[in-house]
Design a protein around this nucleic acid. Structure first.
Lengths: 153, 153
DNA sequence: CTCCATGCAAACACTTTGCAATCCG
DNA sequence: CGGATTGCAAAGTGTTTGCATGGAG
């Protein structure tokens, strides 16, 4: 698994130590990629494999991984910090679709924003480095349910 | 001030009572629009005019105002919930430019996202109702400072 | 053997809640 | 008057920190 090698390499590069705790935390985030786990969920999952681990270590490790640019945090305004793996610069910049009905979070490819970013540079003199885009609305399933309910009424 | 009348009207419509506390909280948010105040900052400002107010009331009022769609919350991932007034559907949907260097937050008009939202409906069968877009980068001032520093080095 | 990393519990910061007193309508 | 609203303090929540112990290099 090349991701794990990367992890080990970056760890050494930065002079950090390799520990089972760090490995387990990282592995859980890798395994559950796309599920947008929050710190508590990650803690619970790691605990299954490594029961001695403490919450503090999980928080510290997640901060470390984020600093190492191996993962990054997303905020869906539900009170939790959630994490995703950084795969590459292109993948990093995807959008999130958040269903207002069931809370489902999906990802979509990022595109078409380049023109907007060029406009911003020209009009606002602001150099965009990254962006976070969230679309709120209704997923297919919930839309169908809502249509059905409308008919009944 | 028509905004305040609106406030009073919506309050009555929903069967809520008019109180000085609510008025003061609302006034502060209106007066400081564009400053993206968080709950604590709002609490401090209201306290200057109305020292007896409690934190709980401020939180409860902000939640009420949000429910009444007079204000809405934004999250800049700094650990605080921040508030803006809702002026109208169009103004509501603006983007935020967040400077990675100095933390300055600016607003830009929202445009060009319609096409992306249409694409999302077609490709992902997801009906977009609202969106939140944040651009991270460098503001003019910080860009200039950074350029200068580069030259010195 | 030397620090860095960990586990634990206590501390934090922001927010919510329970409840008696208060005040709008 | 009666129920909604408030202030206060206590309780919650997610996260961070201090410190002695433990383990990687």
């Amino acid at each position: 698994m090349s991701v794990l090698k990367d992890f080990n390499r970056v760890l050494k590069e930065k002079g950090y130590k390799f520990t089972s705790q760090r490995q387990h935390v990282f592995e859980v985030v890798v395994e559950k990629d796309g599920e947008h786990l929050n710190s508590q969920e990650i803690y619970e999952l790691v605990r299954k494999k490594f029961p001695e681990i403490g919450v503090a270590t999980v928080y510290r490790t997640l901060a470390l991984l984020e600093e190492m640019k191996l993962i990054y945090g997303v905020d869906f305004e539900d009170g939790f910090r959630r994490y995703e793996i950084v795969k590459n610069e292109k993948e990093h910049r995807h959008h999130h679709l958040i269903c207002l009905e069931c809370g489902l979070i999906n990802e979509v490819e990022d595109d078409l924003l380049e023109t907007i970013e060029e406009d911003i540079l020209k009009k606002n003199k602001f150099k965009v480095i990254n962006h976070k885009v969230k679309f709120y609305g209704y997923c297919e399933k919930c839309m169908l349910i809502m249509e059905k309910n409308d008919k009944v009424k």
